[in-house]
Amino acid sequence: MDLSLAAQINSVLAALILLTSFALLVQRRIQGLLHIFAWQGLLLSISTAVVGYSAGLHHLYISALLTLTLKVFALPYILYVLIHKLKIHKEVEEVVNIPTTMLIGIALVIFSYDLTSPVRELSTLLTRSTLAVALSTVMLGLLMMITRKKAVTQIVGFLSLENGLFFAATSATYGMPLVVELGVALDILIAAFIFGIFFFQIRTTFESLDLKEMEKLKEDE
């Protein structure tokens, strides 16, 4: 494959990932949220495979495969089961309304591009232009965690943040060493299980998954 073609494909994929990040911010239904998250994982996996193919780094295929199984199938499935068991069908509740969140998100993307401009000039990797997108994804994931009220949406935000980190790793240095990636993947899987257990605990304790209830845990003066 031609290198410039690979770079172009990668850029398109990066743009799509950024789009899914915004879609996560906009989506009001939890089911939809999970679908978008799965799409984001798929795009990430394809992007990793493309980078691996064009740069000739075969361990990236394993990363891509891991991403595919974990982030496209396993995690959305676990969350889906959780939502069913907890009987959550309501809309996503947000702290800041969606248009404002979008505006903040746009500002964050511009900020990320500004921040990574020195890197883009210095780097010689074909994925260099996508670093800004990776950083934006991290920021948007964090923003999602801040602006949502319910615990499940926060987990999706956290996982999307992790996607961004992974994307940053592939785009900045052609991926982390395989051992690290395997470790991170395992962590994510375990985190998902722990979240599941916590959801049940939180709900039995507070009879709600609204994080506002957890303010009661604060020690009174």
Partner: peptide, 21 residues
Amino acid sequence: QHGRIQIYLLYSFITLVVLLV
């Protein structure tokens, strides 16, 4: 210490942005 997770996350977020800037 408000006891609200969003506020705590906001602290980390602001710290991150400030450090990046």
